[in-house]
Design a protein around this nucleic acid. Structure first.
Lengths: 340, 340
DNA sequence: CTGTTAGCGCTTTCAA
DNA sequence: TTGAAAGCGCTAACAG
């Protein structure tokens, strides 16, 4: 040591501020939490000292003392690469940050056992609430945690075997509306393409599709349905097999944005243009002229965050289920009438 | 109360597990951190008790005791809606989770004072490192924190007035390569469109553009440059003004993905097809046939995360600057020769 | 309005 | 290999 101050300064604590400003630690604490109960002069003294010492309350210690819960809320998603998830994340983050919470984002790579591990590590961090897009077959393993008071919110799909607040899209009616707009143009042979299929969302969309076709007397739809659960099956190829089948469809609807992309790739390859409506909106869909079933993704996230905040405030309120509406956006591809 | 167990169970603590398994709290603690020093029998006893009580170590308390730092690493981004940020976040998250850290994601809505506030609240949470996409004019306010030992990593742009590890793209050379491919096809009047412009990234891309044009003797490029900093100026309109100018360009390069989208909208409106190369790849660019300067976004994130992990391990190592390479992807729009 | 004491759940000594 | 005591930085509960 050469006499100059070359030591790495330690972080200032409440007590350091207290000493410098000549008050007790508790008073400093009050200034930083519920300043209404401290006289203005004291407040100013404390704030000055704090500034000089670059004091920042240690949230870890605060949260520990306040009952072991943190001010973070976790959002667990599957494949982070899918733009859908991050628009939802954006909505959640925006709503949470307005209420003093921060979002902890974790991914499960859409695998069930990864889900359990990730959830576990987040709970160890004492997150204040858990928002998750359920992937595993069964979320009953969260029941214990829920009883301990951690709010658990299902996003985009309802958790299975677990009573929880949920936000979902109007999948069934949204898809039915899309298919009806096609049948109105004369289409009867309509393909439904999706991969994966196991999720609640796709199930519901498929039902909406069948429902709308039943309304015009088409009850045998199996041969137009290309729904796989195997990630190795390329959507583009399933569209190809559909269009190459003996009695090809005159229109296609897709179960999600990835399926839409696959369909577009195949249609471009064939240089064909067929009636197409995708579920999920996407960037540049307008430039491409693709009609879609759209919805406010940001709002989906916000609604989920609000459910969590509600549940934190009213732990014993009734279970809520919010359905975010969809709307059919006409951009051309969905308005191609059946070729006679 | 009806006699059945309707009380909300409290969370099990180390001590509860200790009591149930007949050992001391410290032994249980050992089992959960550095189990090598506990006999196998004891270990099993403890694990069983822990399982029965659904015990989960409280990371808050652990981190507090271990020196007040958490096992979370924050990533601060501007506009969360931009898919670019997401992919970077995905890369970061992936790398971090492999090393036992979780990612705290916060947004600043691309505003400078919001940046300071967000950073402050994250530091209060004692994040272990700070990854940020600098937005404010000046990050010197982080200097104190850096000296306290919090690693700070600049992502996509170097922090200003702050020595910090940084990951950036090869902006200049990437853009120069794109423009060279256009000049090779005979183009000399090439438009450059971007909004916003204030960021390091766009500056560098602009320089690359000018450099490549200088190489073929074009030194006066101002009239082809449409670079704004006003979010209210629509890129589509600036492309329009460019194409409607007395001496319109025969090719366009864009400064980022949003500018590319704007250009596409305008070109579609005019039903024109002009040579176009975008900076940043995007979904369905292949279907649209748009040539782009692409790069591995995920890798950008991973590299940033690795810098943080490095710095945590070797606080006094040399400052690093990583440049992620770009590559020109030919898809047709960039291969349109100049019209004679 | 302000201070004192105790303790959140864990781990770091240090001792056995 | 195991345990007892002390304390991380903060705040709840109680005084004054």
């Amino acid at each position: 040591m050469d006499g100059r101050d070359v030591t790495r300064h330690a972080r200032a604590r409440l007590e350091d501020v207290a000493r410098l400003s000549g008050v007790s630690a508790k008073t400093v604490s009050r200034v930083f939490s519920d300043s209404s109960k401290v006289s203005p002069q004291t407040q100013q003294k404390v704030m000055e000292a704090a500034k000089r010492l670059r004091f920042r309350p240690n949230v870890l210690a605060r949260d520990l003392r306040r009952g072991g819960v943190s001010s973070t809320i976790a959002f667990i998603i599957g494949d982070i690469q899918n733009p859908f998830y991050f628009h939802v994340a954006a909505g959640i983050e925006r709503e949470l940050s307005q209420h003093g919470f921060t979002m902890l984002l974790a991914t499960t790579a859409d695998s069930a056992d990864s889900e359990a591990r990730v959830v576990d590590s987040l709970l160890a961090q004492r997150v204040r609430a858990l928002l998750l897009i359920p992937v595993a077959d069964d979320q009953s393993y969260l029941e214990g945690e829920r009883q301990l008071g951690t709010p658990i919110i299902g996003v985009d799909r309802p958790p299975r075997d677990l009573v929880a607040d949920t936000v979902v899209l109007a999948n069934r009616s949204g898809m039915a509306e899309a298919v009806r707009s096609l049948t109105a143009l004369g289409h009867r042979r309509i393909g439904f393409v999706s991969n994966p299929s196991a999720f609640h969302t796709v199930d519901e969309r498929l039902e909406g599709y069948r429902e709308a076709l039943r309304e015009v007397g088409v009850t045998e739809t199996q041969c137009w349905e290309r729904v796989y659960d195997d990630p190795s099956v390329d959507v583009q190829e399933s569209v190809r097999s559909l269009l190459d089948s003996p009695d090809p469809p005159t229109a296609i609807v897709t179960g999600n944005n990835r399926a839409t992309a696959g369909a577009l790739h195949e249609l471009q390859r064939r240089r064909e243009s067929i009636a197409l409506i995708g579920f999920d909106d996407f960037d540049l869909a307008d430039v491409l002229g693709i009609s879609v079933v759209a919805y406010d993704t940001l709002e989906l996230g916000r609604a989920a965050a609000r459910l969590a905040l509600d549940r934190i405030e009213y732990p014993d309120g009734p279970t809520q289920r919010i359905e975010v509406p969809t709307r059919l956006v006409h951009r051309g591809s969905g308005e191609i009438p059946v070729q006679v």
